[in-house]
């Protein structure tokens, strides 16, 4: 329809609006992607490399550090994303209630963490979660734990700390998407459900979640991509330690490229593992979302 109406000059005008973006995307996105795909089949150090076929892929399977980074990254993904999405949804539903008092305060408070700078929040978490720090002190004061937890020194608790940190930072961000989408849900549906005797919990699972499915899918994919690329937090709070227990794929790529003797080919291969994971997981999420709607 619109296509037929566009004249020749309009076609040209259309291109001029998007041309600057397309040129930049071509240079800084498309070209690097193709380049890195080609690189992942090259072996060698620094700028001396030659074609190695599948040598890098074989190396992946034999590299214990890569496997640890992969398992860590997937652990963060599987544990953190569902918790965060659930918390964000519950907060959004609670805040969408027009009878709720102090709505503005609660909304701003829960959104506030994602306004902080990355560096502020990793520093804060590092100091709050010290062994003698405020968090252990508070947990001991309310009798949740008896002994201080070694958040930064224990491989298990270091992972938990990273999960807490990301959840703190991003829950409010996801909540805003749900709050915005909830504005479009007609309140009379809830009225009808209440008259039919549906409990709040039933309303949540049978009305809210299905209605918000497109947004939930969108935020889940965005969060999956974000978690698979996890770098800033682990580099600043735990430096990947203790003993690689919080090493992620992105941090490993960074180490391979900029800390050790650079092997661009191998690090490009590791980065394509992330691309593949994102592609497979996004696809799965789409399929699951479609199945549920039937």
């Amino acid at each position: 329809m619109a296509n037929a109406r566009l004249g020749r000059t309009e076609q040209i005008t259309g291109w001029t609006f998007i041309a600057p973006a397309l040129v930049l995307l071509g240079i800084f996105m498309l070209y690097p992607i193709l380049w890195s795909l080609w690189m992942s089949f090259q072996v060698g150090k620094g700028m001396n490399f030659n074609f190695g076929g599948f040598a890098n892929i074989v190396r992946l399977t034999k590299d214990p550090v890569f496997i640890r980074a992969l398992v860590n990254t997937l652990t963060f993904l599987v544990v953190q994303v569902p918790i965060m999405i659930m918390l964000a949804l519950l907060a959004a539903v609670a805040l969408n209630d027009p009878k709720l008092r102090f709505r503005g305060f609660f909304r701003t408070a829960i959104f506030l963490p994602c306004v902080t700078s990355l560096i502020a929040y990793s520093t804060l978490f590092k100091s709050m979660f010290a062994t003698d720090g405020i968090v252990n002190k508070m947990l001991m004061a309310v009798w949740i734990i008896q002994e201080p937890i070694h958040w930064l020194q224990d491989p298990f608790w270091a992972k938990i700390l990273i999960i807490i940190a990301i959840t703190w930072r991003w829950t409010g961000y996801n909540m805003v998407f749900y709050l915005a989408a909830l504005q479009n849900v007609d309140r009379s549906i809830y009225e009808a459900a209440r008259i039919d005797g549906a409990s709040g919990w039933q309303q949540f699972w049978q009305i809210t979640v299905p209605m918000l499915k497109p947004v939930i899918l969108f935020t889940t994919i965005i969060s999956t991509i974000g978690t698979l690329q996890l770098f800033d937090e682990v580099n600043n709070i735990t430096q990947g330690g203790p003993s690689d227990s919080t090493l992620t794929l992105s941090l490993y790529i960074y180490n391979l490229t900029f800390k050790f003797m650079p092997s661009f080919g191998y690090s490009a291969t590791v980065s394509w593992v992330i691309v593949l994971l994102v592609a497979v997981l996004s696809f799965l999420q789409f399929v699951i979302a479609r199945d549920r709607s039937k």
């Binding site: 259309g14 770098f231 490229t257």
Partner: peptide, 28 residues
Amino acid sequence: MFRSKFRERIFTLMLLLLSIPFAALMVP
């Protein structure tokens, strides 16, 4: 505002590129 079939295809391709993580682009 200015839709054409070709530009819609470019847009779809762009959305696919959105899923490529920065880590993959960093080195090149």
